[in-house]
Design a protein around this nucleic acid. Structure first.
Lengths: 202, 202
DNA sequence: TGATATACGGAGGGTGCCTCCGTTTGCAAG
DNA sequence: CTTGCAAACGGAGGCACCCTCCGTATATCA
């Protein structure tokens, strides 16, 4: 009855949560294909909500950027979790790095969002890199444990390398190019035993 | 009389050139202090020209960004030229690097302009780095020639290091921090002979 | 010293940002 | 189930900025 200084007098309404999610989904889609300059009304329309609703959930454009960004980072982290259990380590790692490249790709359109990541709260950047490193570690660890990959390459090395690769490459089709380079790298990462199954004598 | 397929029937008007310059100057000032989001009307006002004039010279916002960017790169290049003749090599280099840090500083506000540099014509980026490397070489070369600095650090190393430093640092007063680090680095760059003028025995 | 191409200024139509408020709806107490 | 209400919703509209257009001014050239 009383909420005076107390906590949540009610639980958040279901439609509010649903709408918030819809807006984030729409924003992600629109931003990654049209860049962040696109009008927010378009986002609201795509999400099937009124413009007012959008602004209630995300008072400023930056707030929306940041929420989209955070959500994608979270999703990447969850993906890593699933991949560790669903796939053999190295394949999982490769799959995850592919997702990471796509993530960076959408952020390239989002110059603004990146500047935000570099400028705004240092906390956001710390959050990002720690989450990312956790995720990579989750996939890289078991592989190292199993003796499948070299142990002198850490999650942070890998992360920095991918980001670096993405930002150097720039022409059309750069994503494929990055993946090719990455595959070469991953191949180098593997520890090859003299496994006869790998070298069939004719 | 006839210009049919011929070249420039007239030379460009003086006021046009002057106004173009004024707009660039104003844009630089406004963008570096207020970010690139600031209204273009403000730029026109500061430049003392009509909004129409601004748009005639720079049809789109991006065109203006790019022009400002190019101009600053050119100015940095020219600065290097002057410094080579007016100052002892190392002092000149230091002075120039300071200007470079300021340049990057204004570009940090300009997330958009940077995204442009990364995205738009690869030519712009090539232009930038080659100009920059020339400039550094101009200052570093003589110093190396005179045996004042190590020879295993090239212009591109230096350039990348400064950019990297600028983008890692981020709090308030980061520029001073960068310059401190740079000074340490420059000190390390010097070749110290056993020059008695440097070690006065008491 | 004209003639004229060129540049100038700024009013104004269009578009997107964001606020505000009347209406709707999910939640929970009776 | 019904009823009360806080929470959420949609979208009209005010405001600011973007850019175009055209009548006026002026530098250049004959």
């Amino acid at each position: 009855m009383t909420d005076q200084l107390g906590r949540s007098p009610r639980k958040p309404r279901a439609d509010a949560i649903r709408n918030r999610e819809r807006v984030l989904e729409a924003a992600k889609a629109i931003f990654s294909e049209g860049g962040t300059e696109t009008g927010l009304e378009a986002v609201a329309r795509k999400a099937g909500v009124g413009i007012g609703t959008l602004y209630r959930h995300f008072p400023t454009r930056e707030a929306l950027y940041e929420a989209v960004y955070r959500r994608e980072v979270e999703q990447l982290a969850e993906l890593a979790q699933h991949l560790t259990t669903d796939m053999p380590p190295l394949a999982g790692l490769r799959r995850w790095l592919l997702a990471l490249v796509e993530f960076v790709a959408t952020k390239k359109g989002m110059g603004a969002a990146l500047a935000l990541a570099a400028h705004k709260p240092p906390e956001l950047m710390a959050f990002t890199t720690s989450r990312m490193n956790e995720a990579i570690g989750m996939l890289l660890g078991p592989a190292a444990e199993a003796g499948e990959v070299r142990r002198d390459i850490g999650p942070d090395d890998l992360l920095r390398m991918v980001i670096g690769l993405c930002y150097m490459q720039d022409g059309p089709g750069w994503q494929a190019q990055v993946m090719r380079l990455l595959d070469v790298f991953l191949d180098g990462l593997r520890i090859r035993r003299d496994d006869p199954s790998e070298s069939p004598r004719s």
